[in-house]
Write a protein that binds this DNA or RNA. Sequence first.
RNA 1: GGCCUCAUAGUAUAACGGUUAGUACAUCGGGUUUUCAUCCCGACAAUCCGAGUUCGACUCUCGGUGAGGUCACCA
Length: 479
Amino acid sequence: MEIVTRFAPSPTGYIHIGNVRSAIYPYLLARQNNGKMILRIEDTDRARYVEGATELIEGTLEWLGINWDEGPIVGGPNGPYFQSERMDIYHEWARKLIAAGRAYADPTTPEKIEEYRKECNDKKVPFLYRNYRPDNTPEWEPGIPLRFKAEPKPYSWHDEVMGDLSTGPEVLDDIILIKKDGYPTYNFAHIVDDHEMGVTHLMRGAEYISSTPNYLAIYEALGIDRPKIVTLPHILAPNSNKKLGKRDGAKSVTEYREDGILAETMLNYLACLGWNDGTEQEIYTKDELIAKFSLDRIQSSGARYDETKLLWLNGQWIRKIFTEQGADALYARTLDFWPKSAEKSTDEYKLRVLSIIYDRLKTLSDLRDMTGYFFEEPTLDLDMLVNNKFLKKLSKSETEDLLKKSISKLSGLEQWNADILQNALNELLAETDKKPAELFSLIRIAISFAPFSPALNLTMDVLGKETTLARLNTVARAL
RNA sequence: GGCCUCAUAGUAUAACGGUUAGUACAUCGGGUUUUCAUCCCGACAAUCCGAGUUCGACUCUCGGUGAGGUCACCA
């Protein structure tokens, strides 16, 4: 049987890392089995609808490399893929339930319902609407909500992640199927849609476990088979034990792109948060994830989101792309991340800078803070020079002398490349009888005034003879 | 509060009922001719508690405890 999965977000804003995994796992499962992945937009809550949210969702999936076989943009045989355009379908299925005596129009006002609820709270008994089911119910027509008529009984079912689950009859209730405004609730719409679209694996967060018995009752009343249920454990916020949400400051997935996190990193990290293949592998390409993913190795407990590990992984990916795909491939990813001062520099020059600094990057946006001195004259900061832990041992005249000797040595070089520069530095060490820490720190700071930089010979090579000497001379004059 | 779920180092996780409980991040120390980083080496650090089953329990059972989820005309 063909495997059909779906990601069904509601367009109420951006996708954040707390819920994007509900898109990744269905995608991996579908691709692994040559199945289908459906994107369905659950836009039945008009009050929470956010203009542009659908495009945001599509853009996020696209960035992550998660493509869908049916859904917005691509279409498909089971459309429409916006729930707001499927009203007739829901109403048709609703009438089946009414005909079967399993749904009723409920004229009770919200105020009255609130009274019932309060009454139960006061008596400290659980509030179940089915205990207040009205005796006489009108014909169902637009403007009146439609409720399911629950038949309380225990349920047990199998969850591909959580195992065998069960509940007693007390959780079954008369839930709303169609709202006053005619739109279906999630509770009803997703069941109809998953059925109509042939979904075989329903993957969603752990918050749906408690309402599952009510859904099982609806499948039953509708006389339809249900998909396999795959409950995904929550992703926990860094500083609380609660599931990660927007209130915890959960950033949108695309915000990470702007921060210089690679899509490969994001996919890799999130896929492995709550799943592993049992080996000690840490770095997975998308293809490897597709090949190795398995439902039975999804964790049943929540996993805490750890940005530190994400950053580490991103560094690994930056290096992986550089070594496996080449400097050009990595450079192509960095275009939006250079400091403003780099605007007038050529691609070739920036590529050289990238090639000597890439292994220090945790995010691509680190380029902005770490490469300024390659593109503009650094601000003279003599304190930095004098207070350096190696240089402060030197007297002022020693420093001046060392700088002069360096300038003289370097300006005498016929050729200027990394090897020649390293030789020259080695000779300088021998001639001046200084420790590497002293000589190198002096030159390094004088040409960059940065807290850290790539290897000295490489930095000078990229900077070029003229710039290097000009900066050294500037410092020599200022001392 | 009712119902449901979960529980291995700080974090993410591995371990047919038999391992000195493994790995990675983080932290700390060391090495690679300066710094920061990479890379390499090393250290610290865990089976929530209590019974039971068993020759033997991280693993199975029961009971606690702790944490979370859910009880909407939101999804």
